[in-house]
Design a binder for these strands. Structure first.
Lengths: 212, 212, 212, 212
DNA sequence: AATGAATGAGGATTCATTCAT
DNA sequence: TATGAATGAATCCTCATTCAT
């Protein structure tokens, strides 16, 4: 319990790392199995602690899941919001940056599995769906919508319905995440190449948005 | 339960109708809840029978699910295969017909929920995934691939990699089904208009395929 | 099922034969699986009738079992009792005859499986055990006891405790039946030869009983 | 639940004792009811725990049964094997010791009920039958066969077929166990006296085996 | 803070028995 | 008589959650 300057005994450093380890294990299991099928015992085992310990840090399964989302996705969105607010250059560049950040930080990482999970199981867990909507979907969408508005306002983008355009931008990427985390890649169909998909998608979209 | 002029005793009409009623109820529940979360008791209740009755018609949950797929999706694919084999006109028309059939018979009906379910839970039920791959994905993909080859052979379509092109055709539609059956439509984001999506998609694609 | 010269219409002959067919099927299943593990549906199927039909002839599983015992074992005991009552010769011959009848009619037939079944499951079905005791064990034992008494009375057998001697006679044979119907014969141990066992057993016993 | 001087907290003592308590309860239930008819809930209740607790210690019913056999019968056989290997005296004495150990450790205890159970239900549970054959029947038989061979080799026993003789030795004892655990002892027939049976059996057999 | 033993509600499946036809 | 569809109680097993230590 006593604070100390880096000279902490190993078990204490351990204690500080615990939540991180638990969240990492939980992310892995949720992505691997889905929400309902994830057993907290497996999460605990993977983190090297007992099942009971999990409950010292997280009230229940639902809160554990929310914490995973907060620690990873929400944090990333927050950072993006701040970066966007501070950004001073061309809106096209800003948009490209935000989309590529989404790609590199989330889509191309195991975190994409969370998006797939929400699409897949959201109906069965309304509370989770609502949480995810508020903390992730709404904030993320709104960030993009605001960038679009900024571009239009500054005469960089053609005038268009920013909300609809946000959808047009968001949907394909979500679908790509879904796809890469379903069993489909395993099956006979030759794989979709996500990297190429994203690059083409962003390039095309920015061209289409350009004023004149 | 409704009276009818059928000469059979009500009891026997019942027996004939049972499998249909059970399959309908099962489809509804599977689409509503997903595979794992569907309780057979709920399926039975919705069909107006007891739990045990289900087992008179279907060996277990897995077979029930397969039966739902066979009775609906596989049957539709079979019909499409036959129609395609008998078709004599332009390949573009054939392709458009097959895609629109897919749309009207499956995507635009509750059956789309089955596709979503497989994408969502296929990883957790490998046996189901294999079945679905063989009976649905492989057959469906192969049908489209053959139509593309037919078009190229007849000089109607530009020469292209038919397998990759099949993916390009299939993936967006599967994604659309996924989307319409996730909780996302419920959320703040304005809905995607599937009908418009499909029409645009087909028109664009056919234009892109045309030779010259 | 085969035609015959019987004047009755086929379905009516069928009706008369039904109980026999059902009892035969039930015997087969009970011996094969044991009492608890026998499913009435299998009995019905083997007899070529529906499950419901079984209940037209037998109130329930228990009564079906009792009927099997009555139709086979009890009937045999009854015949033996009458034969014994009518018999006029040497007690040793009578005893040998009774034991050999037991052997040929029961031990060496599938009926031995019923004895095994009672030994194996009697504890779980007290009502059945009591029935079997009264109708089979008590009557059978008492028949042998009376033969022993007759032999002693007529000076043919040494005086001895007839009840204990009955046990000595009965137990090994029951054991033999048990043995031949357990899974043990399947296992590595070389098989016991029941025929030789019985012949030796009877010969030895009669020698041992002889007066002087 | 009883207080004790053990320094461990009651809770931990409990944990150590649990498997034993569960095995004891399981043995009791299996012997009482047979394998199929034993409900795991009853085992749990008798051990004073809930259904779920059982599954903390044993994967499923089958493994629970195997554990009962291992902890009791297999262990006893192992001890007998070692004792036999270390034994240095007359083969007749060794054989008598082994048979009497079998008697006192198993036949005369509730464990005999396991033998009865296997004879009674082995046919319905092939996996269990195989396990029991390998771990108990084969090892036990082989132990006796080796003792017979030792006696013959050392000129103590008449030359004879050791495998057949093993059967002659084993069968009656198994039958005795069967008998004492069937409902038969409850019935009208005067009881077999197992103790006397075994003593006579061993004495007679050893006499018969003696060379010259 | 950490443990891990214990719980018990919940769901898939089986089968003796009933009953409308 | 005969059918066979329907029932529902019974049982195995799982897993989120609790709590004594």
């Amino acid at each position: 319990m006593q604070a100390s300057q880096d000279t902490k005994p190993r078990w204490e450093r351990r204690k500080d790392a615990r939540p991180q380890e638990l969240l990492a294990a939980a992310l892995h299991q949720f992505v691997e199995r889905g929400y309902a099928a994830t057993r907290l015992e497996d999460v605990a085992r993977q983190a090297g602690v007992s099942k009971g310990t999990l409950y010292l840090y997280f009230t229940n399964k639902e809160e554990l899941f929310k914490a995973v989302v907060r620690a990873n996705i929400v944090a990333t969105i927050g950072a993006a919001e701040q970066a966007a607010a501070a950004f001073d250059g061309a809106s096209a560049e800003l948009l490209a940056t935000v989309l590529m950040t989404w790609w590199t930080e989330i889509c191309a990482t195991p975190l994409a599995g969370i998006t797939k999970l929400m699409l897949a199981e959201g109906n069965n867990f309304p509370e989770l769906a609502q949480f995810y909507n508020e903390e992730v979907v709404a904030r993320g969408s709104s960030l993009i919508t605001r960038i679009l508005a900024r571009g239009i306002e500054r005469g960089e983008f053609r005038p268009l319905d920013t909300v609809v355009m946000t959808q047009v931008l968001v949907a394909p990427v979500m679908m790509l995440m879904m796809w890469t985390h379903s069993y489909m890649p395993t099956c006979d169909m030759p794989a979709i190449a996500p990297q190429a998909f994203m690059e083409t998608f962003i390039a095309t979209t920015l061209r289409g948005l350009k004023a004149d």
